[in-house]
Design a protein around this nucleic acid. Sequence first.
DNA 1: TATGAAAATATTCGTTC
DNA 2: GAACGAATATTTTCATA
Lengths: 153, 153
Amino acid sequence: MMKLDHTDLKLINLLQNDAKQTNKKLSLNLNLSVTAVYERIKKLERNGIIKQYVALVDKKKVGLGFQVFCHIKLAQHTQKHIQLFENQISKLDEVVECFHVSGEYDYLLKVIVRNMEHFREFMTAKLTSIEHVGSTQSSFTITEVKNNTQVPV
Amino acid sequence: MMKLDHTDLKLINLLQNDAKQTNKKLSLNLNLSVTAVYERIKKLERNGIIKQYVALVDKKKVGLGFQVFCHIKLAQHTQKHIQLFENQISKLDEVVECFHVSGEYDYLLKVIVRNMEHFREFMTAKLTSIEHVGSTQSSFTITEVKNNTQVPV
DNA sequence: TATGAAAATATTCGTTC
DNA sequence: GAACGAATATTTTCATA
């Protein structure tokens, strides 16, 4: 486990907000040389603390304005069925997030689709065709109040 | 509304997976010149289709292994109370996502904290101190099965 | 950890289709 | 308007201290 000092945490935060700023700009913010910044970033990458650099896309502008949260109960809860369900659900592009959670339902999914038609298609053709899905309960997103990828380090 | 051809969509997908690959690498993938790739990216940025470039951090490696979904009901539902709630909730760093949703509850929150202690603190000191929060129901994450930032274009 | 040179990359520009 | 290659500017990378 890598130790992170205050500068590392600040660097992580800067990169969580803008991954494409130059090392020079970062160095000014952090009071370090460009090389020192470079070395710290490489170390964060090597240690897997920074997993990936991604571009964030405006969902609405690409016609994907419909977000749905699906609460799912499995019909059976053996290790085998859990494995099977998780494998199959992971393959669906529309499912952008899937968490095994405590409480009344077993899984919480975030599904991104174009519109209600598309969602209907997803439900009937894909979701309910996965074996051992018991009941599902869907919540439609009315407003996206906050949607950060940054983690509060 | 900008029209996106097949090359744009492919480019978006490549950048959603790796935002730091060089234009040269992209140009090889897309059968374009480096300049053409450059111009297309700038256009996507200008049109707000690409909103941001971010570094994704391994939550567990920075000690944030505890994810909780909070379902919240408001006590009152006037425009004013909704505004107030959304403003206050947005300010909390632990709340990384917040959606106004249909169904039994009004809001669905994703909260990232260090551990159960930290969550308790968050609940008592922050969440329930926000006015007009009626009831809350929390689901703890057992496993993160899938957690993509990519949108299925 | 810092400096600075070398290599790689991004950006601009003039031109063509 | 979109694409290209050549040129220029900027940034990353790495050897060395």
